[in-house]
Amino acid sequence: MAKPLPEIPNASMADIAFLLLTFFLVTTTMPNDKGLSMQLPPPPEAQTEDIKIPERNMFKIQVNSSDALLVEGEPMADVSGLKDMIKKFILNNGADPKNSDSPEKAIVSLKTDRGTTHKRFVEILDIAQAAYYDIYADQAGVTNEEFRKVASDLNDPENKRIYDKGREGIPMNISIAEPTKAGGN
């Protein structure tokens, strides 16, 4: 004679699981830990006196309080060509007298106004960084996306090698100037 098998009632299992699921849906968030990485300059008082930088080594991007763009003194409405302009400027190596002497000396200067929106700022900074990452990726022989992935994990010696190869001789000189005050607050 067979004993009745002891069984856990599983009709309510789905309900319990749904409850747990709802609990996790409500109390958790999707982590978003991605963004544009930047290194700020040293504190203002620790800086040495102003060093004169020749005009040709500066790529000036200015954004005013109504988010309009001035690139090297010229108004620019469409930003699609900006990345190539920056790349040409950095990799000039003294060929064109208007562009930089060498990638090491080239500085991309981004000056905003206190009234510029963060959205516009991120858009321009993104383009400037894209130009640099494109150059690094080219030099290291990987794609832009791969290079950024490699740069995120430098503990791996292979990644470090690719990263160093890409960055060799080309520091990322993106300077963010103190904003002007025309737009108020």
Binding site: K34, A130, S152
Partner: peptide, 12 residues
């Protein structure tokens, strides 16, 4: 309202 960009880096 987080802005959009292309050159994202992940935090280590």
């Amino acid at each position: 309202r987080i802005p959009q960009a292309t050159q994202l880096r992940k935090l280590q």
